[in-house]
Design a binder for these strands. Structure first.
Length: 1042
RNA sequence: GGGCGGGUAGCUCAGCUGGCCAGAGCGCUCGCUUUACACGCGAGGGGUCGCGGGUUCGAGUCCCGCCCCGCCCA
């Protein structure tokens, strides 16, 4: 309710409670209309403002945003808003990620759940030539449209002030152009190659998974001990056996060797002998390899306990066996189809009598193989065994190590891995990794934006970054999916073209010379027959794979397809396009093409990279360091190095800082997930508490640790999850609202003297103290923002607003504000400064308050100013508080602190006597205290609820208390003072004081302390002891009197 | 197995380079419709700082060992 009798300009009709829903949508529109979030790269290039840029990690379009996104968005928005107010030209580019396998699976599952034709059906259609691929992609596209709209609505609701005109989707035309160019260049440079490798194969989604997409699960399985008969050179069974131990009996069909450890005394003699695979009939050799574990029943290593000493080697179906096979040049026999059924159609020709297993699923085959071995006396035994098995993170079935053609990116090349390693700032490197660098590489320049500039916050994550690179393997970038960037490679053979070949060769050579295509032959760059077109001009006729640079180069594609070359059906790993995010969002490789591909975007692509790359900071979750952070560094440095003629890999960094934020868990320390039903939906919190409350709470939780817990409670009324944590944010916003209501009503009643300039030294103690606190607070906050300590930022604001401004400053000025223009000026400016300092965390409520406060003319106080910005239409665009060091007033802080401490002591005494808050009491103080606090009598009277302060002797009924070791009294506490309560209180005080004295005496009686501790500290302890003793004496004397 | 983080009040967390009686918010207890705010105000109770050693005049803070919890990598 408005208190003033007449409605006023600023404070009218402000409700007692801040209701976010009344303001948030309206304020969002105001920002948009004010074009507050729109960045202008020209201002940076013209030198009008320094750049500050963040690229939003694009959320997956698989689902709506969760609390982790809300946290990340909040952090970025805080940084962007703060820097905008500080005078930076700020750019925050939003977007979304197509998230290949995840989205395809989500859509497939939904179709299945709805009983509609799903992926499997569209695959059949495609095989039947009915264009199933395009139909399915259209469905995924519809899903994407739905969710990206939802995600954008959520982001806006939480106040994410991004430049939405520059929104990018990792599969839109601008991004596709970047992907195409990047792929082409890496292919041309020999850093993308086709390899036959074992991949983690998901037989359900029928796609290869990266190592990061495989989750280990503990499985209760068995060790099977299978006997293979030993044969002589003529192939005749000798009657002996070797017993191999395996958890995967069905793979015996693809065995191409048995291995033993040459240091195994019992079995080394078998090396060189031959065994025959039952049914299959294949004769394989017993080879020696140190990888084989020697059996030892007493060992603590379970492998040694279970080993038989003979290892069956199946290079096509086990990663360790693959490597072993490489070492010994063993045959690789794949016995499975892509759906993990046993098959003789994918590389297995010597089936022999094992045809009975063909067509069985891998687990059926396992049973059948075990049963057959058992029936024929070749199964020695079976033992239960718990072991870890990799599972697909999408379909959750065990992955199958599977031999297939895949495309690899040679990230182990120094131009990629090395440049990423050298990007790390020197302070954060460990000596180990520095040593691992090629000696030939030039010394670090330490130049900004180049080598040795990237800094992790918190710094410990630099270590994960480093060690990941140390153990890096080439990156499998192909995925057997439909939803994604199709691999721009056409494959085929030229052998059959006979007389026509020279004609085609000439066409291809022309296209190559124009930089429109590039070709490769062979597989792995490590292999001898590998050639890329840069070196292979005489051998165009042998090209097997050709990449076309632009998707619009229909001419080149036509030439290839005339040759019978066909485009690879696979798509690129989703991280390939995410890795290009810093480039694609800024229109790389070609600004004018980007503008034509996205006519809705501002036509300034050409200025973006020069103005804003390197970006200022990448803010992300830790699980993504390896998948994403590193790849952006590699790509940015590789391609911009080429563009800037510095050499591939020597280019700029994509960002200067990397901030890794904590992960939010539920109250029990579990990940929030749909499956567990413990997730909190940001929309629900915005509805119940408001966006600001959510943001404040999230910021306050963002400490430097890895995880933070948020107790989740289910609200049966709304059916949603929430957390009591958000009440803190809501209460805080409400506190600000009410402080503002009060301030505005004060300023309405008696406006300050506009145009007058105040000097801090002329202001009252409370005013000087408040300004000094603001100066300190602003410094703490700037420091917190600089070092990404959002929790301490929020905490500082909490203390500044609630503890300092509300609890003490507003209470202190109540009686005088009407008569003191200096106080009104301070009040006006202090609230404004608090609004500005707080705005990045809680933008809506601060803007809502500012809408009213801005009507009150801004006073001048020396040393208090605001940064200049390009506009001040809204608080959002206004300048950051700039408080001169001269505003800091330590004398005022000390003096005010003394008043606070006296008031607290009086309040304690009042509370002990249950004095009604409204009752005015009389304070009797000693002459000495009176002399030193007289200047602040009114302040003490106001804050402590006193009728007067006097040096008169107190009446008998007065309550006694000590302050600075002196004895003082309160009278008029009540009609009668409870002597019992008084005695109890004093006795407790005596107890506390005696305990302190004991501790202090103990410290001082320790000769080591007196001798070795700093003299200042010892003196301090002595003084304290003296004071405490005096206080004790006072209290004891007072107790006597009762 | 390697790496990282955590174990501080009933709960969620601060506590930087070792030094005032270890703090905050929530919850709890008591008192308050005090004319900005009950989403509030005042006061209070509550902690062997995971365990065991060590360094030091002094350790929640540094060192060593161990035990739990979580994450990442193999």
């Amino acid at each position: 309710m408005p208190e003033s009798d007449a409605p006023t300009r600023t404070a009218e009709a402000l409700p007692k409670q801040y209701r976010p829903a009344d303001h948030e949508p309206r304020i969002w529109s105001r920002w948009v209309e004010a074009r507050a979030f729109e960045a202008d790269p020209k201002r940076v290039l013209d030198g009008d403002a320094p750049p500050y840029c963040i690229l939003m990690p694009p959320p997956n379009v698989t689902a709506a945003l969760h609390l982790g996104h809300a946290l990340n968005n909040t952090i970025q928005d805080i940084l962007i808003r703060a820097h905008r107010m500080m005078g930076f030209e700020t750019l925050w580019i939003p977007g979304a990620d197509h998230a290949g396998i995840a989205t395809q699976t989500v859509v497939d599952k939904r179709l299945q759940a709805e009983g509609k034709p799903a992926l499997a059906d569209y695959k059949k259609k495609e095989l039947a030539g009915e264009n199933g691929r395009d139909q399915f992609i259209a469905l995924v596209q519809a899903w994407k449209d739905e969710y990206s709209a939802k995600i954008r609505a959520q982001s806006e609701a939480m106040g994410a002030g991004a430049d939405w005109r520059r929104y990018r989707f990792t599969m839109d035309d601008v991004c596709a152009r970047a992907v195409r160019e990047a792929f082409f260049r890496l292919f041309r440079d020999g850093l993308i190659y086709r390899g036959k490798r074992l991949v983690n194969w998901d037989p359900v989604t029928q796609t290869a998974l990266s190592d990061d997409e495989v989750e280990d699960k503990q499985i209760d399985g068995h060790f099977y001990y299978m006997k293979y008969p030993v044969v002589d050179d003529a192939g005749k069974e000798t009657g002996g056996h070797v017993t191999v131990a395996t958890t995967r009996p069905e793979t015996y069909l693809g065995d191409t060797a048995v291995a033993v450890n040459k240091n195994d005394p019992e079995r080394a003699a078998y090396i060189g002998k031959k065994v025959r695979l039952p049914l299959v009939g294949r004769v394989i050799e017993v080879i020696a390899d140190d990888y084989v574990v020697i059996p030892d029943a007493d060992s603590s290593d379970p492998k040694a306990q279970y080993a038989s000493g003979f290892l069956k080697v199946t290079p096509a179906h086990d990663t360790n066996d693959w490597e072993l096979g490489q070492r010994h040049s063993l045959d690789v026999i794949n016995v499975m189809a892509p759906d993990a059924t046993i098959s003789d159609q994918h590389g297995w020709s010597d089936v022999g009598d094992a045809g009975l297993f063909v067509g069985l699923d891998r687990y059926e085959a396992r049973k059948a193989v075990v049963a057959w071995f058992k029936e024929n006396g070749l199964l020695d035994k079976t033992r239960p065994y718990s072991h870890s098995v990799g599972h697909s993170y999408r379909s959750h079935v065990p992955v199958e190590p599977y031999l297939s053609d895949q495309w690899y990116c040679k990230v182990t090349d120094d131009k990629l891995r090395g440049s990423a390693q050298r990007a790390l700032v020197r302070d954060q490197r460990t000596s180990n990794s520095i040593k691992s660098w090629p000696a030939s590489y030039p010394a670090d320049t330490g130049a900004e934006g180049g080598d040795a500039a990237m800094t992790f916050y918190p710094s410990r994550y630099a270590k994960s970054y480093e060690s990941w690179h140390d153990n890096l393997r080439d990156w499998c970038i192909s995925r057997q999916l439909w939803w994604g960037h199709r691999i721009p490679v056409w494959s085929g053979s030229m052998v059959a073209w006979g007389d026509l070949l020279p004609e085609f060769e000439a066409k291809l050579a022309e296209l190559r010379d124009q930089g429109r295509i590039a070709g490769q032959i062979g597989l792995d760059p490590e292999a001898e027959d590998f050639e890329i077109d840069a070196t292979g001009s005489p051998a165009i006729s042998t090209w097997e794979s050709i990449s076309v640079r632009s998707e619009n180069d229909h001419e080149a594609i036509k030439v290839l397809e005339e040759f019978g070359f066909t485009q690879d059906p696979d798509v690129l790993d989703t991280w390939f396009s995410s890795g290009l995010w810093p480039l694609s969002t800024m229109g790389w490789p070609d600004a004018s093409t980007a503008s034509s591909l996205d006519p809705d975007a501002p036509d300034d692509f050409a200025s973006l990279l020069p103005a804003f790359n390197p970006t200022s900071v990448l803010t992300t979750a830790r699980e993504i360091i390896t998948l994403w952070v590193s790849r952006m560094v590699m790509f940015n440095r590789y391609f911009l190095g080429q563009d800037d003629k510095l050499g591939a890999g020597a280019g700029r960094l994509p960002y200067d800082d990397v901030f890794i934020h904590a992960m939010i868990q539920d109250g029990e320390g579990r990940k929030m997930s749909k499956a567990l039903g413990n997730g909190v939906d940001p929309f629900d919190i915005i509805a119940s508490h408001g966006a600001d409350a959510m943001r404040f709470t999230l910021a306050k939780m963002t400490t430097q640790t890895q995880d933070v817990r948020m107790p989740v409670v289910h609200d049966p009324d709304t059916g949603t999850n929430t957390s009591p944590k958000f009440d803190e944010g809501r209460n805080f916003c409400n506190k600000l609202w009410n402080a503002a209501r009060f301030t505005l009503s004060m300023l309405d009643k008696s406006p300050h003297d506009a145009g007058r300039t105040f000097t801090p030294s002329d202001l009252s103690l409370a005013d000087r103290w408040m300004l000094s606190r603001l100066e300190t607070g602003a410094r703490e906050i700037a420091d917190a923002i600089q070092t990404y300590q959002f929790s301490s930022y929020a905490q500082s604001m909490y203390d500044l607003l609630w503890r300092d401004f509300c609890d003490w400053y507003l209470e202190a000025i109540k009686p005088r504000v009407a008569d003191d223009p200096g106080t009104r000026a301070t009040l006006r400016i202090a609230l404004d400064a608090i609004l500005r300092l707080l705005h990045p965390i809680t933008p809506f409520v601060t803007e809502a308050v500012h809408e009213r406060l801005r009507d009150v003319p801004m006073p001048n106080i020396e040393g208090v100013g605001f940064a200049s910005t390009k506009s001040s239409d809204t608080l959002c665009q206004s300048g950051w508080p700039e408080l001169d060091a001269s505003v800091r007033d330590e004398a005022a802080e000390t003096e005010f602190e003394r008043v606070r401490s006296l008031v607290r002591t009086i309040n304690e005494t009042r509370a002990a006597h249950q004095v009604e808050p409204r009752r005015r009491v009389t304070l009797h103080i000693s002459d000495t205290l009176a002399a030193s606090v007289s200047a602040n009598n009114t302040l003490v009277e106001t804050l402590a609820g006193l009728s007067r302060i006097t040096t008169d002797a107190p009446p008998e009924s007065a309550a006694v208390f000590t302050f600075e070791a002196g004895e003082h009294h309160l009278s008029d506490l009540a009609d009668a003072v409870d002597a019992g309560a008084e005695r109890e209180r004093l006795e407790k005080q005596i107890q506390d004081l005696s305990k302190s004295i004991g501790a202090l005496e103990g410290r001082l009686s320790n000769p080591g302390y007196v001798d070795k501790a700093p003299e200042k500290l010892v003196n301090q302890t002595r003084e304290q002891l003296e004071q405490t003793r005096a206080e004790l004496a006072t209290v004891e004397a007072a107790l006597e009197k009762i």
